[in-house]
Design a binder for these strands. Structure first.
Lengths: 125, 125
DNA sequence: TTGCTTAAGCTACAAATGTAAACTGCTTTT
DNA sequence: AAAAGCAGTTTACATTTGTAGCTTAAGCAA
């Protein structure tokens, strides 16, 4: 999802990507289907469509074993940092600190978050 | 854009909202059209559609003067913090500090940002 | 007052998205 | 081998989004 990737991952597709990201290895449709059917109540057909679209978009890849196995092409980190930068560009005029200021002022940060952040921005360089 | 608001503001619509947010008072279509025609190259018809959709979505309001004047129903702050929380929910599993960690590790923060943040998380409580 | 301009409202239409059925050809089972 | 099941592919269809035209009525310039 460098900036060259045109199409975003949609909400439904993201659910599939999350599975792929959290799997230790490529997954066969069976596994993907099973989990999403349970967690989302989607029909097998729906799940197959989402998988295909991810492959067309180039964010997941299929690998022929006996049956196809699927794995992510972009990592969760790559995607989430892309999505974050996209948000900053679109609504914070490119100022990352404005995003954080907004979080602070809207009470979007838990005590734990704040503790972690204080740690994060303390001695490090 | 409390959580009760179903439909998001789309990218094109956001451009209109930005104008409304940055205006000191309600704006007549004339003004909106003029600016967006210049900055975005959109046809008047397009701009009118976007305005109507914002009104239907309940995020902008029209007020009859002589001609209608438009103003935001939700503030830019409300929207941006909603969008940020939405991002955190969707891709950071609800952990705001993960978002910030991601920004840090992906070099999404400028020197200035970091300085501001260090300030922000220093003595305040 | 008589047009010209153009808000407002309605309609349009392609692409993207959410959701899913139909078809086709392997695999596996009996 | 014949039948059953399901992966992969194709097609479908409603809704949302991006983009814009047409129509009607009203305000303004001449």
């Amino acid at each position: 999802m460098s900036d060259n990737l045109a199409s975003k991952i949609t909400d439904s597709e993201l659910e599939v990507m999350k599975l792929l990201w959290h799997a230790s290895d490529a997954l066969p449709v069976t596994d993907i289907r099973e989990q999403l059917q349970r967690s989302k109540g989607w029909e097998p057909a729906t799940i197959k469509t989402l998988i295909s679209r991810l492959v067309s978009k180039g964010v997941a890849r299929q690998e022929k074993r006996n049956v196809y196995y699927y794995s992510p092409v972009i990592s969760e980190k790559e995607y989430s940092s892309w999505a974050t930068k996209d948000l900053i560009t679109r609504i914070y005029n490119g100022k990352a600190s404005d995003l954080i200021a907004s979080l602070v002022s809207s009470n979007g940060l838990s005590k734990d978050d704040i503790a972690e952040l204080r740690e994060m921005f303390k001695v490090e360089e």
